[in-house]
Simulated scan of single mutants.
Amino acid sequence: MIFYHFGEYLLLLKKVFKKPEKWKIYWKEILHEMNEIGVGSIGLIVIISTFIGAVMTMQIAFQLVSDLIPNSIIGQINRDSNILELGPTISALVLMGKVGSSISSQIGSMRVTEQIDALEIMGINAAGYLILPKIVAGVVMMPIVVIIAIFCALVGGLLGGSLTGAVSAGDYIIGIRESFKGFTMVVAMVKAVFYGFIITSVPAHKGFHVRGGALEVGQAGTRAVVIGCIAILASDYIITALLL
């Protein structure tokens, strides 16, 4: 069954990446999806990332109580943790729940109400028209969302450390600036691109092939989020193993 669904997924992607009939129509859809997927999720990502950064700072300070360890190391650990792991992965998991379920339900509803069948009868590549703009928007907007998440996590760590007295603002800023490796941001952006593809393509596949009625649409949305989260964590491991 796993290979059957994976093969079905690959065949759908083959249809999705066929040459579009009219780029002008696709471009409008891409802009719309960029607003829905990226801009519409920024508020949630800002809140979550800020609190994660604050909590991480307090936990790191609690575990590194030693006269031999400078307080600036707290900012350094928080920076690297958020850039390499927490920023991209937590953002992807959150968006999979928010955006993924929405995509699956939207396309699934169109399938059970036979709107997709009507598009195909008119000679339109339904898979490309409905899914390609979402994938492009996800791949483009996800790195931007991750950059915002990392920035908010670092600011949250600064605020959390200063307010609780876990680390002074000066020591925290020194830690953020010390021994920074630009390659860590490259790894974060590579993860973001892959996550953006997974967040949009996996739910689209589940919604596109749903059969039945409203109940099956809801079940497809649930399965899409579960499978998407597993795919994100698996790709996180693979990318980390290859690049670091």
Rank of each mutant, 00 (worst) to 15 (best):
S49C: 11
A234F: 15
K14H: 11
V202A: 03
T164K: 13
I60S: 07
I83F: 01
V39R: 01
A153V: 03
I69T: 11
A149Q: 03
F180Y: 14
V46T: 14
G165K: 15
T57L: 08
S101V: 11
G108V: 03
V202G: 10
A192K: 04
I83A: 00
F17V: 07
K98C: 12
T240Q: 09
I135D: 00
Y4T: 15
M1K: 07
V202L: 13
V145Q: 04
T184H: 12
Y172Q: 08
D80Q: 08
G196N: 14
M142Y: 02
I121F: 14
F183N: 05
M122N: 13
V46R: 03
K18D: 11
S41D: 09
G123M: 05
A231P: 08
L93G: 00
Y129I: 06
L159P: 04
K191H: 05
A214K: 05
E120N: 14
I198T: 00
F17M: 07
A169W: 06
D67W: 12
Q76S: 08
A61R: 10
T222S: 13
A192G: 08
S105K: 04
L215Y: 09
I107A: 01
V39C: 06
G161N: 07
E29N: 11
K181L: 12
H5S: 12
G218Q: 04
M56W: 07
M58K: 11
I90R: 00
W23M: 15
A61F: 12
I174C: 03
S179M: 11
I77T: 08
V210L: 11
K206V: 09
A149C: 04
V139K: 03
K191G: 01
L11W: 03
E29W: 01
I131C: 01
S162T: 15
A137T: 09
R177I: 13
S91V: 00
W27C: 05
I90E: 10
K98D: 11
V39E: 02
Y9A: 05
G175V: 08
I83S: 03
S101T: 15
I173W: 10
Y195L: 00
M142G: 01
A192H: 04
T240P: 09
A204N: 01
T50L: 15
I174H: 01
E8C: 06
G196W: 04
V140S: 06
I116K: 13
P70Q: 13
L243E: 09
T222G: 11
A214P: 10
V46C: 14
I173D: 06
W27G: 10
I37M: 06
V155P: 12
I238F: 15
L13T: 02
V136S: 09
V39S: 08
G221R: 06
R111V: 06
I107Q: 03
L86N: 08
A204I: 00
P88R: 01
F208D: 01
L158H: 10
G157F: 03
I90L: 15
A92E: 02
I174L: 14
Y129D: 10
T240H: 04
F208G: 04
M58I: 14
L119V: 09
T240W: 01
A204R: 00
I239E: 03
L215T: 14
M122A: 14
V139E: 01
F180H: 11
K22E: 15
E8Q: 12
